[in-house]
């Protein structure tokens, strides 16, 4: 049992970056097609990462390396905790720990781009964190436990009773993956007024580690969505990929908005939708 769990954790650590990188490649290809471009090959993210690791090690200050390392460790840890079916709230806090580490790395450099990017990343955290916690609470109300593994004991998939949380999850994904209209703290393209925002001062191998952390994060988010349809692995995967596709489509049909708009949308619409779902479930139907 214990060996099995360790193997499971190792498998997640090993394969998640591969899956995440491939999905990112698919994302870039899809985005290119939507923009009538041919786009890079599917494996481009891996080529990019290899190139980044072969570059010179340049830093502005030593704290940056610590921040990147803690960021990567927390993203990997949160995925491992999800795979092992641990407490979902702890998991969210670990995720937040990673974000805070990266934000502090951005803050540690006295650069206007990276500092404004970090300030905005704090606001992004403020926007999505309540939505994630509400989601975990909703899962608790269904299962009576905070552990991810307790979802497995449910007979019905969560999506039947918590459909609106899929909508809020798309919001969260758009923010976490820095997709339009939520690419406020630093987008994927360095041609905006913030250059690359919070990422501006990270380069070479450090940037490579950040990319790997992003892949872990992507797989974590998709895995979290898949929890909503745990009864059928295929349906779960399709649901997760469907959400990812929706985020990509939204990314391509919208422009970047301001942080005020983001906070309004997530707090009013996002929290509103979460509460509406809970109210419909428990207020009207009764427990």
């Amino acid at each position: 049992m214990e060996v099995e769990r360790i193997l499971l954790a190792l498998a997640a650590l090993l394969f998640a970056p591969i899956v995440g990188g491939a999905l990112t490649g698919a994302d870039r290809k899809l985005t290119a097609r939507m923009q009538k471009r041919i786009g890079p090959p599917l494996m481009q993210p891996f080529y990019d990462a290899v190139k980044l690791f072969s570059k010179q090690r340049l830093i502005v200050n030593g704290f940056q390396s610590v921040s990147v390392s803690v960021y990567l460790a927390s993203m990997a840890l949160s995925l491992v905790l999800l795979v092992l079916g641990m407490d979902l709230l702890v998991l969210l806090f670990v995720l937040a720990l990673g974000s805070v580490a990266l934000i502090l790395g951005g803050f540690s450099v006295k650069s206007p781009y990276s500092q404004i990017g970090s300030q905005r990343e704090v606001l992004q955290l403020l926007a999505y964190e309540p939505l994630l916690v509400l989601m975990v609470v909703a899962i608790y109300l269904k299962t009576g436990s905070f552990s991810a593994s307790s979802v497995m004991s449910l007979r019905q998939p969560l999506i039947y009773s918590l459909p609106l949380f899929i909508v809020t999850m798309i919001l969260v994904m758009a923010i976490k993956l820095h997709k339009s209209p939520m690419d406020i703290s630093g987008s994927h393209h360095a041609h905006q007024e913030l250059v690359r925002g919070i990422y501006t001062e990270f380069s070479g191998p450090q940037m490579g580690l950040i990319e790997i952390a992003h892949w872990y994060e992507l797989v974590f988010l998709l895995g979290f969505i898949a929890l909503f349809w745990h009864t059928n692995l295929l349906c779960g995967a399709l649901l997760a990929l469907g959400c990812y596709f929706a985020v990509i489509v939204i990314d391509n049909i919208t422009a970047r908005m301001t942080w005020r708009w983001m906070l309004r949308v997530t707090w009013l619409f996002g929290i509103g939708a979460s509460l509406l779902n809970l109210f419909l479930l428990y207020g009207i139907a009764g427990r």
Partner: peptide, 11 residues
Amino acid sequence: TKWTGRLLSSA
């Protein structure tokens, strides 16, 4: 986070 950011900011 904002406070810690100020403390660490350096070039």
